[in-house]
Computed example of a mutant assay.
Amino acid sequence: MLDLNDIALFVHVVRSGSFAGAARRLGVPANTVSRRVQELEKNLGTRLLQRSTRSLTLTSAGEEFNSRCAGAVAGLIEAGQDLSSESQEPSGLVRVAAPADFLDLFVMEWIAEFLATYPKVRLALVLSDSKADLIEDRIDVAFRGGLLEDSEYIGRQVLSAGNDGLVASPGYLAARGAPSTLQDLQEHDCVTFVQSGIGHVTWRMAKPDGIEEAVQVAPRFAGNTAQALRKATLAGLGVTLLPRAILMKDLQAGRLVPVMPEYQRPGHGLNVLYPSRRHLAPAVSAFIDLVVAKVGELDATLTPLRP
């Protein structure tokens, strides 16, 4: 089998007009260049260069071989140079996997700002609450809530865990009254994540003294995304338990109100995952930096749930 490096050496020799010239260009000893070209001729079974003490000339076979290989070698060199120069500037497609409600936290204006800053970057968002396989799905970076369980990936937290809290709409509480103990929730309509069927769901929460309590609630409505639960709660379908980041705007606007805010459940925040720390593309690094910065600013404004 032909060694492509030997073919490239031969093309460089032809361009330079001598073994010494090619050796200087490539930074290798001249005798190494000569030996590798001889090895190429041996593998081809034909002489490519006529050598004399003063010059090198191409044989007819050498002329034909060079004409067919020179363009390909030049293309490979150009491709490498282009990739090297592009590696200094964010460019190319970045595939991002994120929870279905990611754009409720990370607003589209920030993405527009990112793409304006890096005009050579293209962005593809894959939004789903199911966990993407970064390798199989060709994902460059993923954002996930919950505990980091993928030990084969590099991960770090970009939004602090904080606490999850109970909320309901003012209309629901006016009609049904506000629960005063965690066990009172058994008599209320609740909005929960889908589990196996729509049977009872256990909520485990703690008071400021750290003592944990558990209550089994029967969901009136269950969904598979945080936004489905939020919208159901806004529509007055019951009490829900969600992270503070999702609830903050509705609480500030009075669309939702805290329910028994003394009860809190430790949250898991938002984490960023990527397949490997080595050779992380500049466009991917730039997008991670943007998310860390923007979500960090948001994180600083979030406060615990209060009545």
Results as ranks from 00 to 15, higher is better:
residue 1 M to T: 10
residue 8 A to Q: 04
residue 11 V to Q: 00
residue 13 V to E: 00
residue 13 V to Y: 01
residue 22 A to V: 00
residue 28 V to E: 01
residue 33 V to W: 05
residue 42 K to Q: 11
residue 46 T to W: 00
residue 47 R to L: 07
residue 50 Q to S: 09
residue 51 R to G: 07
residue 53 T to M: 14
residue 55 S to H: 10
residue 61 A to H: 08
residue 63 E to V: 13
residue 70 A to G: 05
residue 71 G to K: 08
residue 74 A to K: 08
residue 75 G to D: 15
residue 80 G to V: 05
residue 84 S to F: 10
residue 85 S to Q: 13
residue 87 S to H: 10
residue 88 Q to L: 15
residue 89 E to M: 13
residue 90 P to E: 08
residue 95 R to Q: 10
residue 95 R to A: 11
residue 100 A to I: 02
residue 104 D to H: 12
residue 105 L to N: 04
residue 112 A to L: 10
residue 122 R to Q: 15
residue 124 A to T: 09
residue 125 L to P: 06
residue 127 L to E: 09
residue 128 S to D: 14
residue 128 S to R: 13
residue 132 A to T: 04
residue 133 D to P: 11
residue 134 L to V: 12
residue 137 D to R: 05
residue 144 R to K: 10
residue 145 G to F: 15
residue 151 S to D: 11
residue 152 E to Y: 15
residue 166 L to S: 05
residue 166 L to P: 05
residue 167 V to C: 11
residue 170 P to K: 06
residue 171 G to T: 07
residue 172 Y to D: 03
residue 174 A to H: 04
residue 174 A to L: 06
residue 178 A to L: 01
residue 179 P to Y: 02
residue 182 L to H: 03
residue 184 D to Q: 09
residue 198 I to V: 15
residue 200 H to R: 12
residue 200 H to E: 14
residue 203 W to L: 15
residue 208 P to T: 00
residue 214 A to T: 14
residue 215 V to W: 03
residue 215 V to H: 03
residue 223 G to N: 07
residue 225 T to K: 12
residue 236 G to P: 03
residue 238 G to N: 01
residue 238 G to K: 02
residue 241 L to E: 04
residue 242 L to S: 07
residue 242 L to Q: 05
residue 244 R to D: 08
residue 249 K to P: 05
residue 251 L to F: 09
residue 253 A to V: 01
residue 257 V to R: 12
residue 258 P to E: 05
residue 271 N to S: 14
residue 271 N to L: 06
residue 275 P to D: 08
residue 275 P to T: 08
residue 275 P to G: 13
residue 285 S to Q: 14
residue 285 S to A: 15
residue 287 F to V: 05
residue 294 K to I: 07
residue 294 K to P: 00
residue 297 E to I: 06
residue 304 P to E: 14
residue 304 P to H: 09
